[in-house]
């Protein structure tokens, strides 16, 4: 096993990135539904209070009001936990933001199991599916804290709806400042010939560790990161996957409608045998530690390696 990587907090990185962007562009406004410390939109509340709008615990009104702000030239970043910002005001996002293609950024915090203590009601395995199905929506799942500012800048460069999912906890750094982030294109984190382990967010480091386990069995695995779920460019995906014979997709999301589904969609004309690891049509639960939950639901390097071996 490799040494434990440096860990950093994606939402903390997000707050700083948003602050930097909001300082440069006075039209950026941050909206939150009473969770600004958790989402880190508090960076705007504390440092640029005139660009912060507290919307109270009313997510439906928050999203539709964001649409109204965008219609007047503002660039609203809408924040709360991922489940509350995607599922609860879903129709408001569809009708008010995506249908008219407004420049609203939806930022879902505490994705997957990352709000480990609060349990099933606060965890979220559906956001990528819900956001991906909406026409005009771009969907990002940044891989680590280093990449988050690049994703924020990319979101700002898009004049339209964007969803960004963020992990609550410190997560391993797998990219560097100089690592490129390109919308719609996967990033090869490690080369390999036999099987590609497709990852994003917190699963990237698990994929890298699984690759080392596989190497001990004489199998060569690549690790390919997908920080864009939609749009996904088929040519770029095939180029990143190279000539591997099989795929393992690993996501902190339902296996229905997330990363594995997105890859299956773009490869559907010439698919590869694929094992999908993720949340298998179920809900989570509370635990004292994030790692306990990741292990409980099978998001581990060993499990990934086992799935890969089963395909080879």
């Amino acid at each position: 096993m490799s040494d434990k990587k440096i860990e950093k907090n994606p939402r903390a990185a997000y707050g700083l990135a948003l602050l930097e962007a909001a300082k440069a562009n006075k039209n950026i406004v941050a909206l939150d539904a009473d969770l600004c410390t958790s989402t880190q939109s508090a960076q705007i509340q504390n440092n640029l209070p005139e660009q912060y709008i507290e919307m109270g615990i009313g997510e439906a009104n928050m999203v539709s009001a964001a649409a109204g702000l965008a219609l007047c030239g503002k660039i609203p970043f809408v924040h709360t936990f991922a489940i509350f910002v995607t599922a609860r005001p879903y129709e408001q996002i569809r009708q008010g933001v995506c249908l008219p293609k407004l420049n609203v950024k939806i930022v879902g915090s505490s994705v997957g199991l990352s709000d480990f203590g609060d349990g099933a009601t606060h965890q979220c395995f559906e956001d990528l599916a819900l956001m991906s199905v909406l026409p005009n929506m771009t969907v990002f799942a940044p891989v680590d804290a280093t990449e988050v500012p690049k994703v924020v800048r990319a979101a700002l460069a898009i004049n339209g709806p964007v969803y960004i999912r963020l992990n609550r906890n410190d997560t391993p750094l797998v990219t560097e400042e100089a690592t490129p982030f390109e919308v719609g294109k996967p990033l090869v984190l490690a080369e390999g010939k036999d099987v590609a382990i497709c990852v994003n967010g917190v699963t990237a480091d698990m994929g890298l560790k699984a690759r080392e386990i596989l190497a001990k069995s004489g199998k060569s695995a690549s690790v390919v990161n997908f920080s864009t779920i939609k749009p996904l460019d088929e040519k770029a995906v095939r180029a990143a996957l190279g000539s591997v014979r099989a795929l393992v997709t690993v996501e902190e999301h339902s296996v229905i409608g997330g990363l594995g589904a997105a890859i299956a969609r773009v490869l559907s004309r010439a698919p590869l045998p694929t094992e999908r690891i993720g949340f298998a049509d179920r809900y989570g639960q509370s635990a004292h530690e994030y790692e306990q939950l990741l292990e409980r639901y099978g998001l581990t390097p060993d499990n990934i390696a086992k799935a890969a071996l089963g395909l080879l």
């Binding site: 009104n61 999203v63 539709s64 009001a65 964001a66 109204g68 702000l69 219609l71 609203p76």
Partner: peptide
């Protein structure tokens, strides 16, 4: 609510 956003 959109009107609220426009008014803000």
């Amino acid at each position: 609510s959109m009107g609220v956003g426009m008014a803000i």
